[in-house]
Design a protein around this nucleic acid. Structure first.
Length: 766
DNA sequence: TGGGGATTT
């Protein structure tokens, strides 16, 4: 790398993103201008639930009456009014991820078991903290507004306390339960834990939660935090959600597929259930859209309490993101006061490059500045490595956390005062015309850039260094495109069919994914025999909708059941539905690890990755010692935690299959150790992945059976470099070229046998 | 012979 530090950043005071700035002057508690200020470490926060920081600092909040307005234009005005500055309190942070292992998590929770009196005392103590939250000041006015409308859109900035407080305010007013939905499991669990403390009840009693594999709620639980996926499951069982009188959709601005679906269902349900109230909570500008969707619902605004974040832009655009990132890190480290640095990069590749460059450079940097400690953070990183970003450092050191989008919403790292934002992210876009996904590096939206910047202003004033020009920023789209517009909607469509929606194209979509995308999904479901020729859901389709799996995988299990290889198929499907089970070995050991996998998985080497998964799971199950198991996972670059999840999924699927088939002894065959019937297993998978097949060409390339596109076997596959007549794959991703991932060898004759109805030439006369 | 942003039932 060239040592060229003349990269210039110029200052730009905020006028475009008034919602996260403060007009207040520093209050003196957080900014220290003494020479060695950067040596003073911020107090480490390991989890958000520690009982400290109970005192509030800073200026007085604005009065409650100013905090709530009911129209968007005034919202802008209100947003630019003074923000209070209060030292971070954990209440607003109750969604932060904690990195306990499963066992530790359990211990942590049970160690908190308090007596009735202790619970009440604790709740009284917490009440003082709650009173400092912006939303608490506006309580009376909020309640009045909420009482008068059936649907309300509530804009609450980060740290307003809306997710913890609003349900508590509403509790005495609701006859039935209040459901609060979250996009992520950890958020649902930690919010419920926090609110139970504030209410002074045992978790699972008055306040509880419900997420996959974990429920702490009973009949009569007044406030229930659920994941979006979980409440959709409940809708499948009880379409009128009769146990709730209020449903709160939180984090609606994230626009996940499941949140969007939920809003569509609620819109329809509101006509049926006249006693139901709905609150849509969002952190950003989407308010108008939500309001219109729900027949011009009231919009309320509650301010947050973020600190001011100064934004700096480049004067000239740069090409080399890694180079420019490194220079900026060094510049910030040399020139800025105490506080850690959070860097947003698009992907693992860029992160790993930066980490190794920084490790090399760190010892050569000026001795006056803190020593840089680079820490990568991305989803496929083992949990133990992820947890390192939370550990406190010794004096005279500065964390530089190099992260993907994971740090934008899912993981909140305390102590960050500086954000460096490359303005890039990776997006997966589903091309229904081609039946493949593309993984693109693309610019973020303004909303996303604002969110990233906000990560520097959670505990004190901060700065964000944007590695693009202000002009570039102005050209960014206002909002990230909702996920549903770029996803495969097979699963949502099946869900709607199962809920009795006939006219999918004209359903109450918050955002319609588009006719082409919907028709492609309907076609796929027809091919899977989930829908009949009239588009009505079949019995098979009903069963597929019940299983907590993608329709393809459900179809595979139902076929496998008929052909007598269910147990093996369940094992493989369980592995397929866990992300990051098979890790990418670090480049130093890559060849070695690949060779180990190949020699261990004899069937995998011959038949492909699906059988490798089966073999790996069998090996995993053989260990009786958890230490050996961990070591084995480590040697083969497999995720130990991933396998634990596989076991939970496997268990759940088995239960579902038992109840679907009403055959209690369905999995008893396991005791007999039936030999593995490889063709049956592969044919069962072929029934779900008929369209994901390709024929081998003489030049060792493959062409897909559906469109004749050129496709290559991904190098991470055991089938890489092998010649086969035909292959089947679970994923087709276009990056530098079209890659098939998770590849298995199949026989040409099976294509006609299993997939004749799909692959028959379109021009043939029926 | 080459590279997987993030969720969830």
């Amino acid at each position: 790398m060239r040592r060229n530090n003349n990269q210039k950043l110029h200052r730009k005071f905020d006028d475009d993103e008034s919602q996260i700035i403060s007009e207040n002057k520093p209050n003196g508690n957080n900014v220290d201008h003494s020479e060695d200020a950067h040596m003073k470490r911020p107090r480490p926060h390991i989890t958000e639930l520690q009982d400290q920081d109970t005192e509030a600092h800073g200026t007085q909040p604005s009065d409650g009456s100013a905090a709530v307005v009911n129209s968007a234009p005034r919202w802008a005005q209100t947003a630019s009014k003074k923000k209070q500055k209060v030292k971070k309190s954990h209440a607003a942070d109750a969604k932060t991820v904690t990195f306990f292992s499963d066992d530790e998590e359990e211990q942590q929770r049970s160690s908190k078991a308090l007596s009735f009196d202790q619970q009440k005392a604790k709740a009284r103590e917490l009440l003082e903290v709650r009173k400092t939250l912006p939303v608490y000041k506006a309580k009376d006015e909020l309640l009045e507004r909420l009482a008068n409308s059936r649907v309300t859109v509530l804009i609450g900035e980060t740290s307003s306390g809306k997710s913890t407080q609003i349900p508590q305010f509403l509790m005495p007013l609701n006859k039935k339960s209040i459901a609060v939905t979250q996009p992520r499991r950890v958020a649902a669990i930690s919010l419920a834990t926090r609110v139970a403390e504030e209410v002074g009840t045992t978790l699972g009693d008055k306040v509880g939660y419900s997420v996959r594999f974990d429920h702490k709620a009973k009949y009569g639980t007044k406030i229930k935090y659920l994941t979006d996926g979980m409440i959709l499951r409940e809708i499948m069982i009880d379409s009128s959600l009769s146990q709730y009188s209020t449903v709160i959709i939180d984090e609606a601005h994230e626009r996940t597929v499941l949140t969007d679906l939920m809003m569509g269902f609620l819109k329809e349900l509101l006509q049926k259930r006249k006693d139901l109230k709905v609150i849509i909570m969002s952190a950003t500008l989407d308010a108008e859209r939500f309001s219109k969707f729900f027949d011009n619902a009231d919009i309320l605004f509650v301010e947050g309490r973020m600190f001011k974040v100064e934004k700096l832009y480049l004067e000239k655009s740069v090409d080399d993101v890694v180079d420019s990132t490194i220079k900026t890190i060094i510049q910030v480290n040399n020139g800025e006061l105490e506080g850690d640095i959070l860097v947003f990069l698009p992907g693992q590749e860029e992160i790993d490059k930066c980490v190794s460059l920084l490790e090399r450079l760190a010892p050569e940097l000026p001795k006056e500045a803190p020593l840089i400690v680079p820490l990568p953070l991305y989803a496929s990183l083992p949990p133990a490595d992820q947890a390192k970003v939370f550990l406190p450092l010794k004096a005279r050191r500065r964390k530089v956390i190099l992260a993907t989008n994971i740090a934008e919403t899912s993981v909140t790292v305390p102590g960050v005062r500086y954000v460096i934002d490359t303005g890039l992210r990776k997006v997966k876009v589903w091309r229904h015309q081609l039946g493949l996904s593309t993984l693109l590096t693309a610019p973020v939206s303004k909303a996303s850039a604002t969110q990233r910047a906000g990560r520097a202003g959670r505990e004190a004033e901060g700065k964000t260094f944007r590695l693009y020009t202000e002009d570039d920023f102005m050209k960014l789209p206002a909002m990230t495109e909702p996920e549903i517009a770029r996803s495969n909607v097979v699963s949502p469509v099946l869900m709607l069919k199962r809920a009795g929606v006939d006219d999918i194209l004209n359903w109450s979509w918050l955002q319609n994914p588009g006719q082409d995308s919907l028709i492609s999904a309907l076609t796929q479901l027809h091919e899977l025999k989930a829908l009949d020729d009239n588009g009505k859901i079949t019995e098979l389709g009903e069963q597929m909708a019940i299983l907590p799996l993608e329709p393809q995988l459900s179809a595979i299990l139902l076929t496998a059941h008929k052909s007598g290889c269910l147990s093996d198929a369940v094992d493989i499907v369980s592995c397929l539905s866990v992300d990051n089970l098979i890790l990418n070995p670090p480049s130093e050991t890559r060849d070695e690890v690949n060779e180990k996998r190949r020699s261990l998985c004899i069937l995998g080497a011959k038949y492909g990755d699906l059988l490798m998964l089966k073999e790996l799971l069998d090996f995993y199950l053989q260990f009786d010692n958890s230490q050996e198991r961990k070591q084995w996972c480590h040697d083969l670059a497999l995720s130990h935690r991933g396998f634990k999840n596989v076991m939970r999924v496997r268990n759940q699927i088995r239960q579902y299959m038992v109840s679907l088939t009403k055959d209690k002894h369905l999995f008893d065959e396991e005791k007999e150790k039936k030999p593995l019937d490889i063709p049956s297993v592969l044919k069962a998978f072929l029934s779900g992945y008929v369209s994901n097949t390709a024929i081998g060409m003489p030049d060792r390339s493959y062409r897909t059976t559906t469109s004749g596109q050129l496709i290559s076997v991904h190098p991470s596959s055991l089938m890489f470099g092998k010649k086969n007549d035909a292959i089947m794959y679970t994923d087709f991703v276009y990056t530098t070229k079209g890659y098939a991932r998770n590849v298995s060898a199949i026989e040409l004759s099976w294509l006609q046998e299993v997939g004749g109805h799909v692959l028959a030439p379109k021009h043939s006369i029926a």
